[in-house]
Design a protein around this nucleic acid. Structure first.
Lengths: 188, 188
DNA sequence: ATCGAGAGAGAACGATCGTTCTCTCTGGCG
DNA sequence: CGCCAGAGAGAACGATCGTTCTCTCTCGAT
């Protein structure tokens, strides 16, 4: 077979990576396609060959975040105490990776229409995440797993927002404190 | 003295009210000045006579939110149990008023530069709010008021985000649960 | 060797962005 | 009465938005 004219997959991935980085760092409506293209070093037509438009780029950005988190959760699922692993994973994520807040929460702030593809994707992601935490809490022997999961979803949202607006270092302790209280576990 | 040619205060307030409503409901970068003006029923020059530009309108929007919350807090300060009053006030706010999330958190998602006037205003507001909660916790006899306040700030952020993205009714119980656990109080 | 499909570059599109300019009208004051 | 400072309306500005079009070049196939 050999690649026909050019693999293009390289261009697509580079485009998605550049767009994702800009969307997260600068916000979605704030960055124009011109900037994405110049930063990715490619031309307009190339982008419109791979994506239907800017919104598809936004969806790809959030799908990428979703994929990353799912793989992290899958990795944590193998730990001896999945719930504790998830909580420490969130704390590390806030401190090192998501220092500009939660990509989904930030995107939702810019997309008020809950019927839009972006908001649907966010809703799906959140429902999945809540489900995973419910299972983990049940596995840890919680008497009311859904209640624990609901509290942890709240605390994760708060940790990401607080880490962004108040500083990651000031939120870590409060987050781990509250998470211990909710799960009954002792989290260093 | 009597008003010179026209009070104009009416125009200014109507403009600020219209802009605030649109910014909150639709997001900031999504609404153009044309829409604000047409919805407020006035002309461009009138706006630029009262505000230096769109960003001043954004600042006025957040200042208005700040003022509203401060007066609500002042009112709650007179209650027999200020801390409990604040918590119930937050729960009601999420359920009835701020169903599109927290204006400050949403605005911060669109303003990555922490040196910008918008972000400075947000930081000031959050610092003030944290201080008020610390005082309230101390007044309620908490052994570690700052820790209680930090937890409540987190829970308020989470309640507003969760109320927006997951529905106000599904977040109320979790919020009151967690708040009781943190404060040690029994919040119906 | 010739062709055609696919990928890329860049000019150009209309629409809208935030902002400025020009003009008219009103109302208090000499 | 004449006047002018202030408020408002609306046309127009350049810049940028997201999108489409046209052209070139490179490939594999015939």
């Amino acid at each position: 077979m050999t690649t026909p004219a050019a693999p293009t997959n390289d261009a697509r991935e580079r485009l998605a990576a550049t767009a994702s980085d800009l969307f997260y760092r600068k916000g979605i409506h704030s960055v124009g396609v011109d900037r994405i293209l110049s930063e990715a070093g490619m031309s307009r037509a190339t982008m419109y060959r791979h994506f239907g438009g800017k919104e598809d780029l936004v969806v790809a950005y959030l799908e990428g975040e979703d994929r990353t988190i799912r793989s992290q959760v899958a990795a944590a699922g193998g730990a001896p105490d999945p719930l504790a692993a998830a909580i420490h994973g969130i704390a590390d994520d806030v401190a090192h990776r998501h220092t500009r807040g939660c990509p989904f929460i930030n995107a939702a702030a810019e997309y008020p229409d809950e019927a839009s593809p972006v908001r649907r994707l966010i809703a799906t992601h959140r429902a999945w995440f809540r489900g995973v935490l419910t299972q983990a809490a049940a596995g840890a022997g919680a008497t009311d797993p859904e209640r624990v999961a609901a509290a942890l979803v709240m605390l994760r949202d708060a940790a990401l927002v607080g880490g962004y607006l108040d500083g990651a270092e000031s939120i870590r302790e409060a987050f781990l404190d509250a998470a211990s209280a909710v799960t009954g576990a002792d989290l260093a």
